[in-house]
Design a binder for these strands. Structure first.
Lengths: 130, 130
DNA sequence: CTGTATCCATGATGATACTG
DNA sequence: CAGTATCATCATGGATACAG
């Protein structure tokens, strides 16, 4: 995310079967957007509320990207004031299993703060005879 | 991706059940590393070969992070020249379902190039009466 | 071979202001 | 309300050189 998925100027890993889905998760906000859309159709403002801290700019960008990829469809409502409604497409719903799997895994993972991330590796480092 | 998961200086979304797993995918290379370790234990050099284009610096960083999080264990072999062996821990293996789900989804997603990403949204924009 | 330290380029975000 | 445009910031990644 940032989850950023930096695409090397060269070529993306030919082997990795993960490259594609990783592109999907690009930005690290996309999964949350999909998750927020898993239920009923949501309007832009509702999504902003559902996904705390996401900026309008980023939400807009992700929605557009997901739309271009065919995971999300956008409908303009001729209301006043005008509003927009976003829903998952059939293709978009196919992503849910992966999202759910991620959530399930997350619940099993221990919480790790920033400090620990930079901690030494000695924790599990073990010396064994060759 | 920089699937990067940029942690706001403020606070991470309290609600999102995805935050944790997303932290795991940080860097967008982690999933590939886990995937590469899904089989037999691998040495540093083997991983570099398994994951084309990944730099030693990044591979090292991801392995360390996964190690700190308890998903990967590292073993130094007293060989000459010295070598290291990485394996998934039990916790690490629990992530596989999510990885596999991502791969499965990836196969269903259409290929989308950079140009399309910036393309207009008109494709699916539809006007419906309110 | 296994990593680590630097330096640098780029992408992803956040904040803010503005338009329809 | 729904977005978009701009500007500034920072993390992640790549390349290269160096160390155990």
């Amino acid at each position: 995310m940032g989850l950023p998925l930096r695409k090397s100027k060269i070529e993306p890993p030919p082997f990795c079967p993960l490259t594609r889905s990783l592109l999907l998760l690009r930005g690290a906000w996309a999964p949350n957007v999909i998750w927020a859309l898993s239920g009923e159709p949501r309007r832009f403002g509702e999504l902003r509320h559902d996904i705390p801290l996401i900026s309008a700019r980023v939400l807009s960008a992700r929605l557009r990207e997901l739309e271009v990829r065919g995971l999300v469809s956008r409908h303009l409502l001729n209301t006043s004031p005008p509003s927009a409604e976003y829903t998952l497409t059939e293709l978009g719903r196919e992503v849910m299993p992966a999202i759910k799997a991620l959530i399930a895994v997350g619940q099993k993972l221990p919480e790790v703060g920033e400090p620990e991330r930079k901690a030494a590796r000695r924790a599990t480092a073990v010396r064994i005879a060759a």
